[in-house]
Design a protein around this nucleic acid. Structure first.
Lengths: 217, 217
DNA sequence: CGATAAACTGAATGACCATTCAGATGCCGT
DNA sequence: ACGGCATCTGAATGGTCATTCAGTTTATCG
């Protein structure tokens, strides 16, 4: 378990390494189960250093949320940059949400964040801005699609609310490993709803198979 | 804060009173934040008694989940018993989910349960059977509606999956008090999706206004 | 080169909590 | 009235952490 090889020069140095470890630990053990010693061990440092950098466990957790936000935004922008028309963009978002990527589709972390948001103010704000951003992107895609004639919707805001909520709901099953819910069914079910909701007409070019299928352990 | 008046004869005695207090505390402080002393204080007893009855905090939490399941089932059955046709039943489920009732629409508790299900096996099982039950009811209503001609659906299972997921997703906003998400918008958005998904044609009798609006503090 | 500061460590320290326990109190059948 | 049993209490007990700290190593810069 004690790999010490590539740790020497992670970009960003020890501090960022600790934050990344923190996120990993939260994902595995939850906010509640995350101890300073877990973070230190995962990062290959001492407990003292974690506190030296962040002052307290609470601060470390909070800072890791900020890092998470950054990665989320980066991933979203990058992926949307690749897509061409509204339909393609929508499809990319579906795949991001289905978990083909490091941050956006990391639903275990989202469930944790939702629960924590009820009791911790940092978490509340983090999840709020992440959610806002996500839904704004979705809305933009829909509005663009309406403008370009790809979609037909009476009320884009309502449509985006619903499609976003549907993702969250499906994601719960995904995160909890409900039998019968896979990434494939996720996109499948969601896309069908989107087609219905947005009256996507053009049947060509729907659901291209995914190229890569990378995901973290 | 120390009210001691009506505690004397809660039906079911001290033991059940402790379980109910446990659920309340979980709702307010989360699983992680729930201490034996919180439960005891809330129930108006000593810490010792909590442990006397349940042996450990973990057991108390677990037992409270069982009570929660019972209440959920009771509430669901009772409410569905009141309804007449498939459309009416569907509407009742929407209202239950929107939080007009003590157990089913208690979404803060659900968020907690989802998060805990990732790390605790009792929670995992509890949420799984609750979820299964809920979705089975929804599926039944849909199938009945198809049989009676009220609904037109190609694949009832997929429809029920989607409609259930949509509820969960909307519920997150509700639980986290997202500005712009109320019980009314919840039913509104969901019902519109249901109408679309199930091709509900009969426009009369849709969305009767709610009679009572009771809810716990 | 020093030397000053930053980064880092590991061993205390102390707070917080679940759990234990020795005993009180009420209850019930006889 | 009394023995025995379940219920109940409040004060220990002990373990598990976050946090502190005295001191060591490493980087930086004149």
């Amino acid at each position: 378990m004690a790999i010490v090889a590539e740790e020497v020069k992670a970009p960003g140095g020890r501090r960022e390494r600790i934050l990344r470890s923190t996120i990993e630990v939260i994902r595995e053990r939850g906010f509640a189960g995350t101890r300073v010693s877990d973070i230190a061990e995962r990062a290959g440092t001492s407990q003292g250093l974690v506190l030296y950098h962040f002052g307290s466990l609470a601060e470390a957790l909070s800072a890791s949320l900020t890092l998470l936000e950054d990665e989320f935004y980066t991933e979203l922008d990058q992926e949307l940059g690749l897509a061409e028309g509204p339909i393609d963009r929508l499809w990319h978002m579906a795949e991001l949400a289905a978990g083909y990527g490091p941050a956006v589709g990391d639903w275990r972390l989202w469930l944790e964040l939702w629960a924590r948001a009820m009791h911790d103010d940092n978490a509340r704000q983090a999840r709020e801005s992440l959610d806002r951003r996500w839904r704004a992107s979705l809305l933009t895609v829909i509005v663009d699609g309406v403008a370009s004639g790809d979609f037909v919707v009476a009320d884009p805001t309502r449509a985006s609310l619903r499609l976003a909520a549907l993702m969250d709901g499906l994601a719960i099953q995904l995160a909890l490993e409900d039998p019968g819910m896979t990434r494939a069914t996720f996109t499948d079910l969601w896309w069908e709803a989107a087609v219905l909701e947005l009256q996507i007409s053009d049947p060509k070019r729907h659901r291209p198979p995914r190229k890569r299928a990378r995901n973290r352990a």
